[in-house]
Design a protein around this nucleic acid. Structure first.
Lengths: 253, 253
DNA sequence: CCATCTTTGTGCACGCGTTCACAAAGACAT
DNA sequence: ATGTCTTTGTGAACGCGTGCACAAAGATGG
């Protein structure tokens, strides 16, 4: 999961718990699918199944938004789509800039899921002069020098960082200084931001590592139950040495 | 955050809580950086700052792994890198297949963070015959028809799905049938998998929506404190209509 | 060898999130 | 109008995660 930074002390925004907010987009997607199939109403049970959650949790989540259901019938799909959209702030236009147009940045620029939810890619920004002016996803890439002007001219408050790790903090600082107050960070770094700025992190490598942990556990359980720890001196061959340098396996002290 | 599916009932894997497992990669990255700078030891306070977490939490996390610290001194960087790597299963080679070589799939194939952590892209798979044989990130794309054979020949247990939403479940089923037991899903769909298969989801659009929620709240707080809810009939113009169809704002019943 | 000082490891309390289970509410048929 | 049946909304209990605060442990200096 994209590890969201809980910089704020779990401040229940307006009675709506963070965990609920994180699930609203899930419900919205399921409801949108139902809406496209012209399904008029849906029960908590059905919708919960479609969203992959517990039905009691779904009902409690909705109860934070208000009493939008009808007992004995269920929820009106269209109405709920509107209510959740409004609650999430998707009924307004959110201009977004993407900084760092490498493979990932280009993928993000092309990602349809943004435009379909009220997000508009206002600009693509990259530090490489060779890219400047070249269109990606139909939008010409602009140079980092103009970052501040772009932010201000477009009234951008949400920035996406898809730069290499080394450049992320600097880009972040400039974004914040220019007025951006929400950042989606794809760079594998911890960003330092002042209070009032929200950062969410998506880290592809971390997700894989978590999977590897469970995978290893599954493999270990079915094979040897609780084998002794392998001698710490001889480290099992670790495929390819990454840029992390070699990882010696010596005991300390 | 990539919303991890808690399909298992919060099964504390082997005494190590899920929340801790999710943070281990963070610690590992911070430690790796220290290792590259040849820092021999680090205190919980320093490391916690580098990883962006509370120091007490970090110490408790490490306590689940064992007593690897030295009181009055701190933790031996190299040793801790090894212990966490081993715990996460990164000391072994994890062959991974990426299915769906669009913009995102190509970005993932090029992503350096995989190879550097014991993950090896064993194969790229796409349904488009035009792509078959073309190299992406130095690896020739193979056709979906050979999916089962590729999985088995390479002993792949981790699959990455970067297909359009419509194809995701089908691809998932085939991966699972072929022996994959861990899936990282980038498609915006809820995947149905049998017990014993782990799914983690990364959804770019969801992250942005969560940011939009907080952004809206911030904007609403500084402007009007608690303005009345806008008349539900007249919906504020919603930028561009996405592929979700028009979203009427009518009250039900 | 002893005193002091630093830093770990953890017992404890608190709060958030999840789930169960049920009463209240409304639809629908008779 | 009344009874039945479905489904919501929520009170309450429970478990996990977090953070405080402190005792135990070991390093270090005299």
């Amino acid at each position: 999961m994209a590890t969201g930074r809980t910089h704020r002390p779990a401040t229940r925004s307006r009675g709506i718990p963070e965990a609920t907010v994180a699930r609203l987009p899930l419900y919205l997607r399921a409801l949108t699918a139902l809406s496209e199939r012209s399904v008029p109403t849906v029960s908590s049970e059905e919708l919960a199944a479609a969203a992959g959650v517990n039905s009691a949790k779904l009902r409690k989540d909705f109860s934070y938004l208000g009493s939008y259901g009808t007992r004995g019938v269920g929820y009106d799909v269209e109405y709920l789509v509107y209510q959740i959209s409004r609650e999430l702030g998707l009924t307004q236009d959110w201009p977004v800039v993407i900084v760092g147009i490498g493979n990932l940045g280009a993928a993000l620029a092309n990602y349809g899921g943004f435009a379909s939810r009220g997000f508009r890619v206002a600009a693509l920004i990259d530090a490489d002069p060779a890219l400047t002016g070249k269109p990606v996803a139909g939008i010409p890439v602009q140079h980092t020098d103009d970052l501040e002007k772009i932010i201000k001219d477009n009234g951008v408050s949400i920035g996406v960082i898809a730069t290499p790790a080394g450049a992320a903090q600097q880009v972040c600082d400039r974004l914040v200084a220019a007025g951006v107050t929400s950042i989606l960070n794809f760079a594998p770094t911890v960003l330092n931001v002042p209070d009032g700025v929200d950062v969410r992190k998506v880290d592809l490598s971390i997700e894989l590592q978590i999977l590897a942990f469970h995978e290893q556990r599954k493999a270990g359980e079915e094979a040897a139950a609780e084998g002794a720890v392998p001698a710490a001196a001889t480290r099992p061959d670790s495929a390819d040495q990454g840029p992390d340098g070699d990882v010696p396996a010596v005991m300390p002290a």
